[in-house]
Design a protein around this nucleic acid. Structure first.
Length: 272
DNA sequence: AACGGAACCTGAAAGC
DNA sequence: TGCTTTCAGGTTCCGT
């Protein structure tokens, strides 16, 4: 599920659950989320630590403990953090558990990830995966001139370029599709052929679609996952074959960079 | 050096 | 019904 809006929602939840809390026990239930690091070492490092702050950059989370310990979390394709009562049986996809004590209350913050594309990393400094991220469209905003220069230096399709996290951090397949539709740019348009006005429009479109995504998770009860069966909230993602909301012609679907890409062949022109 | 595609995994849904 | 195929919102590695 996670693109920037879902990770932002996860950050808010983790802040509520963990800030000021002490990790009494850390458990890694499937070492594959560590990509080779030692589960035992990680569990020992986290145990006893108190959480100071939770940050997000792009799709990465950084949980800062005291004594300079940093826990980085990437949710991959199916990762999510959930709250569980102590003693609740672990479900199949529960890959890590943090037993937590906060203000005399005890509970479990658990990491679920059926597909195991996510990962946990413990470090004393920022890791390259975090440091090499481009600007976060929500935190930093998107500078049109900078984005134009960066895109102009590449020879790729604009859709694939938007998924490059060193260019912009947090845009994933859905929001790339949505932003290109909003900006009326063909997903297969070459980055070096885009005009400055197009890039400026695209920058605003990215900010718009991400902000709308974040807003969907706001409210008294932050729910991280859309209810099953809830309507698709996107303008064109997942709507291939249906009428374009702007011109009513049927939406097309192609594959770019190995990922499904919906667009409107009438509204989104490759050159202009 | 940069790009396109395969690989890494599981599970839900669609197809037969 | 049950088996098979397809698809999924991410990143990384490998060959060209």
């Amino acid at each position: 599920m996670p693109e920037l809006p879902e990770v932002e929602a996860a950050k808010k939840q983790l802040t509520r659950w963990l800030k000021g809390a002490t990790i009494t026990v850390a458990r890694i239930r499937d070492e594959r989320i560590l990509r080779g690091a030692s589960a035992k070492a990680l569990e020992r490092t986290l145990a006893g630590g108190t959480v100071r702050k939770v940050d997000r950059r792009g799709k990465w989370l950084r949980i800062a403990l005291d004594e300079g310990i940093l826990l980085f979390s990437h949710l991959g394709m199916t990762g999510k953090w959930v709250l569980r009562a102590t003693g609740t049986p672990a479900e199949k996809s529960e890959r890590a558990q943090l037993e937590v004590a906060k203000k005399a209350k005890g509970y479990r913050v658990a990491y679920l990830d059926p597909r195991l594309f996510g990962r946990l990393i413990v470090a004393n400094d920022d890791i390259p995966e975090w440091s090499s991220l481009g600007p976060d469209p929500l935190v930093d905003g998107i500078d049109g001139g900078t984005l134009y220069a960066a895109l102009h230096a590449l020879r790729r399709t604009v859709k694939e370029a938007l998924l490059d996290q060193s260019l912009l951090a947090g845009v994933g397949n859905i929001h790339a599709v949505e932003a290109l539709w909003l900006a009326r740019i063909h997903p297969r348009a070459r980055t070096d052929a885009l005009t400055r006005p197009q890039v400026r429009t695209l920058a605003r479109a990215i900010e718009q679609t991400l902000a709308a995504g974040v807003a969907r998770y706001e409210g008294p009860e932050i729910r991280y996952v859309e209810e099953p069966g809830s309507p698709n909230p996107f303008a064109i993602y997942g709507h291939e074959g249906e009428p374009c909301p702007r011109c009513a012609r049927p939406l097309a679907r192609i594959v770019l960079g190995g990922r499904g890409t919906v667009f409107c062949a009438h509204c989104q022109k490759e050159r202009r």
